[in-house]
Amino acid sequence: MMRLLWMPGTTATVACAALEETGAPYELVEVERHDRADPPELRAVDPHGLVPALLDGDLRLHEPAAIILHLGDRFPESPLAPPVGTPRRAEYYRWLAYLANTLHTAFTRWHAPRHLGDDGELGRALRAAGERDLHTCFDHVDAQLAGRDTLVPGGFTGADLLLHMLASPNWTLDLQPAVFSRRQVAALHAAVDARPAVQRMKAIHGPDRGSAGA
């Protein structure tokens, strides 16, 4: 059986939601929050030991986008991934890559100086640039969603789960009203939030607590 190493309120939420979408049995293993003290550069270097970790046989996956991609292939009957070789599949890759390497990393830069304990000039400058880039990203996503209900046209995919997490109050903190002022983003967040699999995930992790981070 697959196992998910998790802590409430972290990127484990999207891994958990993706598992719930597959309907496959899995075991949740809660991990202590000890790694919060690790410097982010150390955690970025060696992804092992990070939460979440999806253990599936000999595979050990950490990054939310990789977990979604893998589960979509393992469970092709789930709604996570469009069929291989279709234009929708290509679009699904594009959104997962963009959300993971641009929106997610803008959050990391906005949050990271706190983890570093850098309240000085550099920390403020990095945070400000990260916040500026978050607004740019959400504007882009909002514009791309014009005239459609999901990131990949034609229906829900695992990419919508990743955007749902990154637009949630756990991530956006005091930027939440600004993020939800993008109406397409807010509508997609609400639609994904209502999915039974996401409701089951939220029952496991508890309510948004506005305390997550990178």
């Binding site: 970025a44 992804p47 599936d56 046989g57 000999d58 595979l59 996956l61 950490h62 990054e63 986008a65 990789a66 991609l69 893998h70 292939d73 393992r74 092709p76 291989v84 997962l96 890559a97 993971a100 390497n101 641009t102 997610h104 990393t105």
Partner: peptide
């Protein structure tokens, strides 16, 4: 091949490379 363990490992590497060293 899609659905193989190696495919999962391939996603792990590509996602890691594009999210971690590339932005830095």
């Amino acid at each position: 091949p899609v659905g193989s363990d190696e495919r999962g490992d391939w996603y792990r590497w590509l996602v890691y490379l594009t999210t971690t060293p590339m932005p830095v």
